[in-house]
Design a protein around this nucleic acid. Structure first.
Lengths: 197, 197, 197, 197
DNA sequence: AATGAATGAGAGTTCATTCAT
DNA sequence: TATGAATGAACTCTCATTCAT
């Protein structure tokens, strides 16, 4: 199983550097220091190792985010803030991997669909609880979950990946949270923050 | 210029069917009914015709959206509703092209960056006017613009491209508008709509 | 005829820069500032313009050399010295063209054969006269002519083209003349020069 | 290693027939009876296999010549005669390969430069020894070495390659040796031979 | 489990040349 | 005479994949 691990690590590097299509198995095995044929002992195809890898990355991302989100009080807005912060941090630390994950939407849409469903499922449960606790204004929690994910993703893409920054500028983060507060139906938080900012 | 047009049309079809990487110039020229070498009379590379095409598609998309948005009263939420509707309509009518545009984020990030900046610029002006008119609660208009775009994009991806639907389900659309209303800082619209729905 | 001249000039530049095979008609017509098709109004093929050009270059080279050779007294060794000097000067001033001429041995061997025959013919007449005048020791003048040409060519190749010098080092030239003196059967000249050098 | 050898042999044939530029990897692999991709398992490019091949040819040529030269007495003129004879023999047996070697001056000048340096180095040592033994009149041995090589090369080109002969006519060879004798500063040998011829 | 030589289809691209205008 | 769009064959090279060892 040592070899398998080395192949996955090498693949992570190569996919990060070049994206799915420009990565080649030749470069992966070179990086892993194994022979060409060895690859096919462990994986059936480039697609397979990619999906495996994206699955791993998604797990790591989810773990990082839920660790962040879990760390605090019961206030939903705070939970979102921590979740977004954790997400942005991951993206900032691994911008290349983040690109790979996003690219997977096109290369392995089914795998990504499953990944999103898993995220949204947890998200929805949290939002429903928060709505029951009057912490979030009632609305369709699934749509709200997708909307929140969307905001995190494009803002991450915009300010981290495209701007090559190593973190979201804190002003942008704050303004992002204003919008998030509004999305939760807590206009007062959003308004207050902005008027005082 | 006839040939150039035919190549662009063929490229649109082929890229739609296969995405950038699995599209081949050979298939484009076959589709266009011209010789292999003719391609290079008009374009320097696959990348070049792709960027050209994505530019065209983006123009069409922007045009479709602004036509939609322009059609009504001065209320910002209505404007957003029309804009989202127009966007979803475009995505639903050309799901494959919509995928191509999104794929361009990875294949031609610079071109897409320019495209987004152009969209955001217009968006920001509209939001600033709406804020001045007390139609939108004050906040950073750039972040809000990106957030709104993000919501539209991922919802479109989720319910149209991945679900292979020919339109956003109207319930989803309504709920999406609830969230959008909140994002504009008009919680009452959002709340009212949901409580009555 | 203006266009034809411009094509030849452009071809001279392009062949000099890239050699025969890597030169392309496309680059020649671009350089000449005329359309692709115009080329074929004046020349039948790349080969044809190349041979034409090499013919011109050979004429220029012969002219430069005979001008040098003619300039002096009746002593054969002096004539050779002037001829070699003129040849090396041409090579040093147009090293790229000199390479083109040499390359023509492989690209257009027939043309070069004719060129060499023309040179050798004149050379032989001169050597025969010098032998008659007891200025050159008797031997087969044709073989001697080829041998002398060979020495000039390879020395030029070695010290000018490969070394990127802008002239033959004068010491080398002198030593070269020692050898040439011997080839003319004037060992005393050669020996004397060396022992005093 | 079997395949590699077959590729080199095939390349030798194809380059001989067509020269570097008109040879194609496609023809080489067809001749070798291997698949297109196999070529790139063993060589990085056409240039690489060519340089490799020219290196081999040069080795063979040097070997043939030194074998010839070594076979006899200590007299330098005899040594030259045997060296020239061996060289002409090689050229006559493999005129196409000889053309390839000469073409390499333009296609792979660096490789040829190294090759010539190696030859000249050995040549110079021999000439110095001969000068010390009063067998060759003193002069710059490097220049003399290049000059002797030059004579062999162009005479070989003239009478074998261009004339498609299968040997240097013996009269020409003898006259060539007259000139060589003179180059060694042994005018008497040269003169004697001619006057008696 | 690991190797690595061999495969062969197919990619993007270049180019000398033609021809209707 | 000059144009320049169109041609299509040929090229080098890459790659995921197979298989005998």
């Amino acid at each position: 199983m040592r070899t398998r691990r080395r192949l996955l690590d090498a693949a992570e590097e190569v996919f990060s550097e070049s994206g799915f299509h420009d990565a080649s198995i030749t470069r992966i095995v070179e990086r892993a220091g194994v022979a060409q044929g060895t690859f096919y002992v462990h994986f059936r195809s480039k697609q397979e190792i990619f999906e495996q890898l994206v699955g791993d990355l998604n797990s790591r991302l989810r773990e990082a985010m839920s660790k962040g989100a879990a760390a605090g009080s019961g206030d939903r807005l705070d939970a979102e803030r921590r979740g977004f912060a954790a997400f942005f941090e991951f993206a900032a630390e691994h911008p290349a991997l983040y690109r790979v994950i996003r690219e997977a939407e096109f290369v392995a849409p089914l795998a990504m669909h499953r990944h999103y469903e898993k995220i949204v499922e947890g998200y929805v449960r949290g939002l429903e609880a928060a709505m029951a606790a009057d912490d979030v204004a009632p609305c369709d929690p699934t749509v709200l979950a997708w909307a929140l994910i969307a905001v995190g993703q494009l803002v991450g893409m915009r300010w981290i990946v495209w701007d090559h920054r190593d973190a979201i500028p804190s002003g942008i983060f704050d303004e992002c949270m204003v919008v998030v507060a509004r999305m939760l139906g807590r206009a007062s938080d959003g308004a207050a923050r902005t008027s005082s900012g």
